[in-house]
Amino acid sequence: MEISHENISGYGCIFKLRGYAEIKSFAIELIKTIADELMRRGARGIGHIKLHIEGKNEYLRADTIGLKYGVYIEGLISSSEEYITTINAISLGLRREDVEEIVHESIIKISKKHGLEIINHNF
């Protein structure tokens, strides 16, 4: 499979969450869930998955280039109730529609698990 723009698929979206939760744990679990699911559905590899969460005067970012390398986390969110969340996931070998579906499903599942309500989104 020649690597080209055609077989590297990326999908990104923005959504707003509300609730009190341990945001660092949420971020790590969301990234891990997306990464696991991309590979489970046949991705050849992870390009990267990047997440940016913005609270009230606070931010947190997390990213991975594949779970064997871990999830990098920077920043702190400890006193916000609403979060603007931006995520971008890039994989090798899956269709864009598959990446989009996996990202949406993971956001819905993991937000609910952490008691966070999705109050706005662009998907």
Binding site: C13, K50, N88, N122
Partner: peptide
């Protein structure tokens, strides 16, 4: 310039 529609970087 990022792949994907939203500017995380």
């Amino acid at each position: 310039n990022e792949i994907g529609e939203v500017p995380v970087d």
